[in-house]
Each structure stands twice: as structure tokens, then as C-alpha cells.
Design a protein around this nucleic acid. Structure first.
Length: 954
RNA sequence: GGACGUUUAGCUCAGUUGGUUAGAGCAUCUGCCUUACAAGCAGGGGGUCACAGGUCCGAGUCCUGUAACGUCCACCA
């Protein structure tokens, strides 16, 4: 197999993946004698596309999966996609509106759902294609979709069981209502945004001629939502507020409406806020709802489901039962108006009637639906709820006692603080795309819950002629996601997979869905899945929480900001115009397009170059510092693409020098110093890399691989190999060839979890040369390096460290003397130890090349040398005759600077060591170190001084 | 209002239970097309570790406080 001269990943990555997949290598071994390792992929939106966050998380998952697979574990990466209720429905609705000018209501439920399935079929393959390009080794044969038959069965099962246990109930309550999507949403889906608004001060006139103690014939009420006054059913004052004590129990006249409402005393009213009087609208405000319940106030709903003023209000009692006797008329002029239009009209009318006292600017944080993007409206509706408080207790316990660990740990705080005051979870959605709620209603409104209509009739003993209608609502998407770890493994059946792979090993996800998903998964799983002793099983043992990937300025990547980069464009590259087109297509605010196009053109004048999958994955790992958001940096990606290129070329070097042939392992005695050294370093690198993976430090994993391969293997070892291949004996050549190939092959296995493709290419060439091929012919299932068979060799390391230091000293001097790189130098070494002299002379062939020298002369102490430029090296000294290279004056100047610096070091060292407190309290090791350092500095100073006096005497 | 996080070189970030003179990549400067690699090689410059106190022989690291930025939660008549 030939390696092309330059690294071009696009030529081989896709082909390699295809082969792996075709050969079924992503499936678990099912070898139960080995530990199981499993990850459930957080299911991406089925019709979505891959963004940087996915690429990041999936890289980490794939790295873990590949590592464990190579270790021989029975490894499963369970994948699949989510139906993403609201998101997907919205996309299809928008498409429908754009292309056919239709709403879903025009089509009707059945036809609409057909369209969604069609859309899924068309675009559902997008994200899985992208995952393949990323190299994800997921078991595609087990791919699931949350609305599959199997998973839907799990959803039904869970719902029915929870209902039968009394943990799911239906009730009329105030919920967060999205008027754009016309559905209830959970409190998690509400996003509070700071907006500039107003506070309106409105006079509510007393009925029956009542006056306050101050003699006013009205109560002043401050509100940010004047339009809701149509639904007011009381005014509240604080029970201990002296200003209003005398009017409690009296009535005021509701402005614009004329209805009488009572003044009540309730602690909700704060004497120091606003005017002290607060209007109570139980059907349109969460606090007021609580006040209404406490005081048994009627609740008056004045809004339609798209937040227009109703033609006639609906009245309920405090238990949510219709209250036809309560007459809450809506003045004709407001009927049918949008809520904000109605506000304007009413404020105008209040003003003209002299009931508007004044308006103040007011900053408030307003709730918005995170999907629909419009202000949500608290709305009185019938919804289904999960009693989260009951399920929450064991879920909290599992994290508290360590059965589930968060990495980084600080996210546990976030989890606890949310779990501690867990609200019941509203699970019904007034959508069409999703799992339909398995509840049926009789004509009398009675509720029956079972897996299907047939079961309802037998379970509740209903005869055939009882008419039943099914609840039209669907479940919150997160309801089915919460079952993901076990529903994908075949639950409610007791499958071998469930026994083998549950609990899963680790969950990799973003902090933004800890509440939405992680917490609910823990609750549901622990309630339904028990181990063989009947104890609740956790869904996963570790939660690895990733930060967000932001753009280079630290801004969130979003379509509307036009700063998104598709991970695939970094892999395969994209031209400038293509990138601009992508970023400005289908914009919600087309006016932004021009700005985005300009910025993009400026930032990427030549588009984005192809970097390959391995470089992208390596970069993502390198940037994955624990618990931090990542500001994406293209330069890092460039740097790591260069690293791939380095691996490529080092491999080419090896093949050029060895040739593709079978290699025999040499006797230990045949190994050169460099061979011993690199084997020793490799052993350390293996230990460090393994430790990094095990502790989820993917940044360390990347930097250890990088350091070893580039700074040790390439910068030094390959250079050490050159003279051997040029001038060595056959035996020396063979030993070095073997070591070179061995270390390269092992490095590829070490790197494979992060860089699956380039490691495959190089491994496939090198492994057979060493007799390490496998039946499948892939590094994917080759054993992960464990360092066995490699020896730590302190002596070789020490010798090579000396050779490196020596080389660096000579290079330093050469640069300072401005000697041409091509000029071979004669170098004197003076004052070295016996070992150091031996290292130098025995390995002169290495130095010749690395330092560009023709001869090393070992000089005795006091021996007269020609005038030299010199540099202390440890306690010895390296000298190069300055003749023709540098004059004495500048050399003296350089040495004087060095002298100054050394003297400074010595002074501070002496001060430290003469400090009683230090010598008596610091550990011996530190004191020894300080002494050695001082001694070294003194020796070096002595060298510098004598050299100085010698030069000055010329 | 409550909680958490961040602040280290021009930029993006490491820095372990406190221990000699604080690191990497990129950028920058100098010199090199040296038969694996110019996507490279060799060498250099660049830091009051946000600020103020404290503990300690010793603080980037521990404690207290301050500031700026960020995130989450709660509240908002």
C-alpha cells in the first residue's frame, strides 16, 4: 500500500467507514465474559441536522466507545432519533404555509400527520449521514425512533402504569400556554426575557359611595397587564395595611366593565410594592391563581387559545368547575381583539374616562415560549400531569449517594436545586405530532385509561355500546425521551440486551437539558427498571456534561445570528459563496441576510478548507476542558490538521526507510539507546493517555498524544533513526526498523479512539509487518495498548536527555553566533561527568546530525582552548571556537548578561536557604532541590566568570 | 434576590493534594526549501496569574472581600 505524498483525508475516510459498517464491526461482541460498556446517544431531532454541539458530544462518545471496544469490552453505542414534537410539527407547518398556503387545520389531523411522516422520510436520513461522516461507530442495526412501534409501546405502558398507580392525573389548572402554537408547555419551556414595558396606574371606583380613610372614592391599582382586568374577580390588600383596613369587604366597580368585585385581605399584597392594592385575575396569573384558591374567588377566562379576547368569558369556581351563575360580561368593543390590541384600546378608553391616573416605564422579565417565540399566557385548561415529587425522591438519592456521578461535579448542585422543589410535570400538549394520550372519555366526561380502547372496555367493564372518544392531545416529547435508555433496549419485554447493557455506562450531554431530560430519565428509569434484587436501576452511572460551543467571539451559535458552522464543512471544506448561501438561506428575518453575508465574506474570504474528520475530532477533544464553554477557534483546527499531516509524513518516513516487509522482534541487547528511550517514553505515554480517557480529560488525552508523537517521536526519535539507516550495520538497522514500526503501530492504536481514520490507514500497513494483523483487518478491534512488553528505562532516558540538552546548547550557540546552519562545527565539552562524556562520545553519530557538528573534543579542566563562545550545560560547559564567527566584545556582553542573571538566582537561593523558617519547616525534598539548584548556579557562574576573564585578557 | 462559573502571554486555553525560574497551540520576530513533512525545521521575544487583604518557610493554587463578564433558578402590582 502506498501512501500519497500529502495528507488528503477526503480520499480515504468515507471508504473506510463504509467498510467498517458493511462488515458489522459496530455491533457489540456480546461476549458476556467481558464487562459491558454502553452509551445511549441523546437522540437528535429526526429531521434536524448536525451542529457543532452534536459533533462535540458524539466525538466524545465515539472516543469512549472505541476505547472500550478495543479493550475488548462488550460495547454498545445505541443510537436513534427523536420525533421532537413541537419542533418537527412547526417545521412542517411552516413548509405547508410557504409552499401551499395551508394550515394544519386545513388538512385535518390525519392528513397532516401523514405529511409529517413524509417529511421524516425525506429528511430523516440527513443527520444519520452526517454521523457516518463523523466516524461514529454506532450500532446502526439497532437504530430506533421515538415513535417506532416498540418505543410507543413503552410509552403506553409507562403512562398506563403511572396512571394506575395514581402518579399521573388530569386536572384543570393554570398552565403556561403558547398562543402561537396553541398548546400548553412545561415551565422548562418558558424563557424569561428582560423587556422594557410600562406600569399602568388605574382607578377602581368604590361601589356604594364608600371612601378610604383618606377620603378617596377609588382604589389605585398598578398593573403591567391592563387588558386582563376583564377577568378580575377581586382587589387584594395586605391584611395589616392600615391604609385599607376599613375597606376590606367592600366592593369596587371594575372599570370599563361595570361589574362589582370585592376587596379582600390577602398576604400576597405587599404594602411596599406598587400602590399596595393589587388586582386579582385568577385565570391569567400564577400568583393570582393561588390567591383565588385561598379566597375561593371565581376564575374568569377572557382569552381564546390564540390569545384574543373572547366573545364571552368563561367562569369557573375555585375547583375549576363551571360557574354559569357568575356573570362576567365582555364589552363588545374588545371582543375578538388580539391581546395587545385590546390593551391599547382599553388604556385609551380608561384614559378618556379619567380612570387612568398615569403610566410609568417599567422593566420586567416577560415569559416567552422557547419554541414559538411569543409571550406565553397563563391559561386555565385541562391537562395531564406527572406527580414528580414522588418520583423525584429516589432520583435525588441516587445522585446524593454516588450511584450516579456528574462530571464535572458542580452540576450536581444544579440538579439538586431543581429537584428539591420539583413541580408536577405537565405532559399533555395540544399538538398532533407525538404519542397520543391513551385516555378515553365517556359521554359523561368520565376518564378511562388503558393501552387501547379494547382494554379500556374490559378493564372498566364497559359494554360495546358505550360511546368513547379518545383524548386528542399528545405527550410532551420529553416523556418518551425519558424512557430512552430502556425503551431502546426492548422494554417492557425482558430482553437480553436490557440485561446486558442497562444501566448504561455514561451519558454525554449538554447542561442545557439536565432538567428536561437527565433528571426525568433518572426518575422514570428508577421507577420502572429494577435489578435482579428488585432495587431501582439507574439509567447511567456517569453523566458527562459538556459546555456549549460558541463562535470565536464567545457568542452562541445560532441560525439567526448567522454564525453557525456546519461541522461537515470543516471536514470537507466549503467555498465562500456556498457558506454565505447556507448561512442566509431560509432566514426568519431576511433583512439580516445582507449583514451576515458581509461578515461571512470578511471572516472567510476563501471559504473553509477541508480539514478531515480526524482533525475535527482531535480539535474537539483538545478543547474539551472540563465544564467550560468552548469558543471555537479555526486556528486550532488548522493546527491539528497539521498534526494529522505530521502523522502521515512520519509514517511515510518509516515506510521509506523500512520498506513494507515482515519484521522480526530483535533481542533486547540489539536495541539502540534511542530505541530503548522511545520505548520507555511510549510506555509513559500509554499510561498518561489511558488515565486521561478514564478520567474524562479529553483535553489531556489530545495533548499527551500530541506531545508524544510530535515532540518525542518525530522531533527526536526519527532523527536518531536517520544515521542508523544511513550507516548502521544490518543488525542495527533491523532493530531500529522494528522499533520504529512497533512504536508507530502502537501509537496508532493509542490514537485510534480519537482519530479513527488516519490510524486505520497507518495501522493497516504497519500491523502486518509486525505480525499483529487481525482477521477483520482493522485497528478498530485491535487491542488497546496496555504498555505490557515495554520497559521503563531510566538510564536510556537520562542519556537521551543529556544528548538533547547538548544539542540544544549547540543550537543556541550557533544561533547566537550566527553561524550558518550548514556549517559543521567543532565543539569542546569541558567539565562534564564521566557519564556525560560517555553519552556524548558513544553517541556522536546522533549528535553529528542533530547539532550539525564535525567533532566533539573533550577538554580537561584548565586546558587552554582557542577563544570560544560558551554556554553552561548543567555543571559542564559547551564551547565553540569563535574564530571567524563572532567578536570578543559581543561575546563578553552576552556573558555579562548571563553572569548577572546567575548572580541574581544565587542571591535568592542563598536567601532562601539561610532562612531558618524555611530550612526547619520545608520538607527535605524541597530543601535538597533548592540546594542542588544553588550549587548548579554557582558552578555555572564560575564557568561564566572564568570564560569572561579569559576573553577579557585577549 | 439566590446559586454557580470565569478572569493566567497579542488570541484560544492547560496548570493535579500549595513546592525550585508559570506552560501549550496559534500569532509575531530571526535564520533555514537539511532526501518524511514549508501543513515543515531550528532559534528568539512576549506574563504584576483581575484587584485588595489574609494564612503559610513558600500562594496562579487555600481563606475573606471587591470588580468585571457569563450562566442557571426565583421574583417582578
Amino acid at each position: 500500500m502506498d501512501m500519497e505524498k500529502t495528507y488528503q483525508p477526503e480520499n480515504f475516510e468515507s471508504g473506510i467507514y463504509k467498510k467498517w459498517e458493511e462488515e458489522g464491526l459496530f455491533k457489540p461482541s456480546r461476549d458476556t465474559s467481558r464487562p459491558s460498556f454502553s452509551i445511549a446517544l441523546p437522540p437528535p431531532n429526526v429531521t434536524g441536522s448536525l451542529h457543532m454541539g452534536h459533533a462535540f458530544q458524539q466525538t466524545i462518545m465515539d472516543t469512549l466507545i472505541r476505547y472500550h471496544r478495543m479493550k475488548g469490552d462488550n460495547t454498545l453505542w445505541q443510537c436513534g432519533t427523536d420525533h421532537a414534537g413541537i419542533a418537527t410539527q412547526m417545521v412542517v407547518e411552516r413548509k405547508l404555509a410557504r409552499e401551499e398556503h395551508l394550515t394544519r387545520h386545513d388538512l385535518g389531523r390525519e392528513k397532516f400527520i401523514e405529511r409529517v411522516w413524509k417529511w421524516k422520510a425525506e429528511s430523516g436520513g440527513n443527520i444519520t449521514r452526517q454521523m457516518r461522516r463523523l466516524g461514529d461507530s454506532v450500532d446502526w442495526s439497532r437504530e430506533r425512533f421515538t415513535m417506532d412501534e416498540g418505543l410507543s409501546r413503552a410509552v403506553l405502558e409507562v403512562f398506563v402504569r403511572l396512571y394506575d398507580e395514581g402518579l399521573i392525573y388530569r386536572g384543570k389548572r393554570l398552565v403556561n400556554w403558547d398562543p402561537k402554537l396553541r398548546t400548553a408547555i412545561s415551565d422548562l419551556e418558558v424563557e424569561n426575557r428582560d423587556v422594557k414595558g410600562h406600569m399602568w396606574y388605574i382607578k377602581y371606583m368604590f361601589a356604594d359611595g364608600v371612601k378610604t380613610d383618606e377620603g378617596k372614592d377609588y382604589l389605585m391599582v398598578a398593573t403591567t397587564r391592563p387588558e386582563t382586568l376583564l377577568g378580575d374577580t377581586a382587589i387584594a390588600v395586605n391584611p395589616s395595611d392600615p391604609r385599607f383596613k376599613s375597606v376590606v369587604g367592600k366592593d369596587v366597580i371594575l372599570p370599563l366593565v361595570g361589574r362589582r368585585i370585592p376587596i379582600i385581605a390577602d398576604i400576597h399584597a405587599d404594602m411596599t410594592t406598587g400602590t399596595g392594592c393589587v388586582k386579582i385575575t385568577p385565570a391569567h396569573d400564577f400568583n393570582d391563581y393561588a390567591v383565588g384558591k385561598r379566597n375561593h374567588l371565581p376564575m374568569v377566562n377572557i382569552l381564546t387559545e390564540d390569545a384574543h379576547i373572547r366573545d364571552a368569558a368563561e367562569s369557573f369556581d375555585d375547583a375549576g368547575k363551571p360557574l354559569p351563575g357568575y356573570d362576567a360580561p365582555i364589552p363588545e368593543q374588545y371582543r375578538g381583539l388580539d391581546r395587545f390590541e385590546a390593551r391599547d384600546r382599553m388604556v385609551e378608553d380608561l384614559n378618556s374616562q379619567g380612570l387612568l391616573d398615569h403610566i410609568e416605564d417599567h422593566d420586567l422579565s416577560q415569559p416567552f415560549g422557547d419554541r414559538g417565540g411569543v409571550p406565553i399566557e397563563p391559561m386555565l385548561t385541562d391537562q395531564w400531569y406527572v406527580k414528580a415529587s414522588v418520583l423525584g425522591k429516589p432520583a435525588m438519592e441516587a445522585v446524593r449517594d454516588g450511584r450516579i456521578k456528574f462530571v464535572p461535579k458542580q452540576y450536581e448542585n444544579m440538579y439538586f436545586s431543581w429537584m428539591e422543589n420539583l413541580q408536577d410535570w405537565c405532559i399533555s400538549r395540544q399538538l398532533w405530532w407525538g404519542h397520543r394520550i391513551p385516555a378515553w372519555y365517556g359521554k359523561d366526561g368520565k376518564v378511562y385509561v388503558a393501552r387501547n380502547e379494547e382494554e379500556v372496555r374490559s378493564k372498566y367493564k364497559l359494554s360495546k355500546d358505550v360511546e368513547l372518544t379518545r383524548d386528542p392531545d399528545v405527550l410532551d416529547t420529553w416523556f418518551s425521551s425519558a424512557l430512552w435508555t430502556f425503551s431502546t433496549l426492548g422494554w417492557p419485554d425482558d430482553t437480553p440486551e436490557l440485561r446486558m447493557f442497562h444501566p448504561t455506562s455514561v451519558l454525554v450531554t449538554g447542561f442545557d437539558i439536565i432538567f428536561f431530560w437527565v433528571a426525568r430519565m433518572i426518575m422514570m428509569t428508577m421507577h420502572f427498571i429494577k435489578d435482579k434484587d428488585g432495587n431501582p436501576q439507574v439509567p447511567f452511572k456517569t453523566v458527562y456534561v459538556t459546555g456549549l460551543i460558541r463562535d470565536e467571539e464567545g457568542k452562541k451559535m445560532s441560525k439567526s445570528k448567522g454564525n453557525v458552522i456546519d461541522p461537515l464543512d470543516m471536514i470537507d471544506g466549503i467555498g465562500r459563496d456556498g457558506l454565505i448561501k447556507k448561512r442566509t438561506a431560509n432566514m426568519m428575518q431576511p433583512q439580516m441576510a445582507e449583514k451576515i453575508a458581509k461578515r461571512t465574506a470578511k471572516q472567510f474570504p476563501d471559504g473553509i478548507a477541508a480539514h478531515g474528520t480526524d482533525a475535527l475530532r482531535f480539535t474537539l477533544c483538545a478543547l474539551a476542558s472540563n465544564g467550560r464553554d468552548i469558543n471555537w477557534d479555526m486556528k486550532r483546527l488548522d493546527g491539528y490538521r497539521n498534526f494529522c499531516n505530521k502523522i502521515w509524513n512520519a509514517s511515510r518516513f518509516a515506510l521509506m526507510n523500512i520498506g513494507e516487509r515482515k519484521l522480526e522482534a530483535p533481542e533486547a541487547s540489539a536495541l539502540s539507546l534511542a530505541d530503548r528511550y522511545i520505548r520507555s517514553k511510549l510506555k509513559t505515554a500509554i499510561a498518561e493517555v489511558t488515565e486521561a480517557i478514564e478520567s474524562y480529560r479529553f483535553d489531556n488525552l489530545a495533548s499527551k498524544l500530541y506531545e508524544f508523537f510530535w515532540n518525542e517521536f518525530c522531533d527526536w526519535y526519527l532523527e536518531f533513526c536517520k544515521p542508523v539507516f544511513r550507516n548502521g550495520t544490518q543488525e542495527q538497522k533491523d532493530a531500529t526498523a522494528y522499533t520504529l514500526c512497533d512504536v508507530l503501530e502502537t501509537s496508532m492504536r493509542l490514537a485510534h479512539p480519537v482519530m479513527p481514520f488516519i490510524s486505520e490507514v497507518v495501522w493497516k500497513i504497519t500491523a502486518p509487518m509486525l505480525g499483529r494483523g487481525n482477521a477483520q483487518g482493522t485497528v478498530m478491534v485491535a487491542p488497546y495498548p496496555d504498555g505490557k512488553g515495554l520497559e521503563e528505562d531510566k538510564e536510556a532516558e537520562a542519556a537521551v536527555e543529556w544528548l538533547k540538552d547538548f544539542t540544544v546548547s549547540v543550537r543556541n550557540l550557533r544561533a547566537e553566533m550566527k553561524a550558518a546552519p550548514s556549517k559543521k562545527l567543532v565543539v569542546y565539552l569541558r567539565g562534564a561527568t564521566e557519564d556525560e562524556i560517555r553519552y556524548t562520545t558513544e553517541n556522536f553519530s546522533y549528535l553529528e546530525n542533530l547539532a550539525g557538528i564535525s567533532e566533539v573534543k573533550v577538554a580537561k579542566e584548565g586546558e587552554a582552548l582557542p577563544p570560544c563562545s560558551s554556554k553552561p550545560l548543567r555543571k559542564a560547559e559547551v564551547l565553540i571556537p569563535m574564530k571567524g564567527l563572532v567578536d570578543a566584545t559581543s561575546e563578553i556582553k552576552r556573558l555579562e548578561e548571563m553572569e548577572k542573571k546567575l548572580e541574581g538566582n544565587i542571591r535568592s537561593g542563598e536567601a532562601r536557604l539561610s532562612n531558618q523558617a524555611f530550612t526547619s519547616k520545608a520538607p527535605a525534598k524541597i530543601i535538597e532541590g533548592a540546594k542542588a539548584q544553588l550549587e548548579l548556579n554557582r558552578a555555572q557562574l564560575e564557568k561564566v566568570k572564568s570564560q569572561l576573564s579569559e576573553l577579557r585578557s585577549i
